[in-house]
Amino acid sequence: MPDPSLVSPDTWEHDFALVSREGNDEVQLALFRDYQNNRPLYPLLHEFLRTSEVPVLAVWGRNDEIFGPAGARAFARDAKDAEVHLINGGHFLLESHLDVVAGYLRGFLGRVLG
């Protein structure tokens, strides 16, 4: 996050409270251990994107260290007419660039829903 002051403390305090709930550490570890089962599904997702013509919008933080921009670009390789926008921001893109993201979303929905 280039300017951490743009992220309201309410955002991360709320997230911290949720992940700090009793037993959540075990839930998160179980999800992490199970992630290996997601990988075999990736080819099915990419095939779906290639064949379904489902509209895809990816508005992504170019500097997101959790979900890197390669994830957004992957949509463009498989989804016909995918819209991919890499914004000069990080993981908290809605906090730092809400108006930009909302503009892309409104335009996309206007075109897709007519």
Rank of each mutant, 00 (worst) to 15 (best):
V19T: 03
D25K: 09
D3W: 06
H97R: 15
N37P: 01
L105E: 01
V54G: 08
A58H: 01
H91M: 10
R50F: 03
V112Q: 14
P4L: 14
V19I: 14
V56W: 05
E22G: 04
R77K: 15
R111P: 11
E22F: 12
A17R: 05
G89A: 15
D64C: 03
P40V: 09
D3T: 05
S5R: 15
H97V: 02
R33I: 09
R73H: 14
D25S: 14
E22I: 07
F92W: 14
F48I: 03
G90M: 15
G114W: 00
V19S: 00
L98H: 00
F67Y: 05
P43S: 10
G71K: 10
H14L: 13
A102Y: 11
G103E: 11
D99M: 05
R111A: 15
A72F: 04
R111F: 10
P69Q: 09
N37E: 01
N63T: 13
P40K: 08
R33V: 14
A58I: 07
G89P: 07
R21S: 04
V84R: 06
P4K: 04
E53V: 06
Y104V: 06
L29V: 07
P69H: 04
G114N: 06
A70E: 15
I87K: 04
A72T: 05
V84Y: 08
E13Y: 00
E65C: 00
H91F: 07
P69C: 06
F48H: 10
E26S: 15
E26H: 07
D25P: 02
G61W: 03
P4A: 13
E83T: 15
R62K: 15
R77L: 11
L113H: 07
S5H: 13
A30R: 13
R73W: 11
R33D: 04
N38S: 12
A102P: 00
R39I: 02
R33Y: 08
L45I: 08
P2A: 10
E95I: 00
G23A: 08
F67P: 02
L113E: 01
L31N: 11
F108V: 09
P69W: 13
Y104E: 13
G103F: 09
A74H: 07
N63V: 13
L94K: 12
V27M: 13
L113F: 13
D10S: 15
V7N: 02
H85E: 14
A58E: 03
W12L: 03
L98T: 02
D78Y: 14
T51M: 05
V112D: 02
T11A: 06
H97P: 08
Y104H: 10
D34N: 07
L29Y: 11
D64I: 12
G114Y: 08
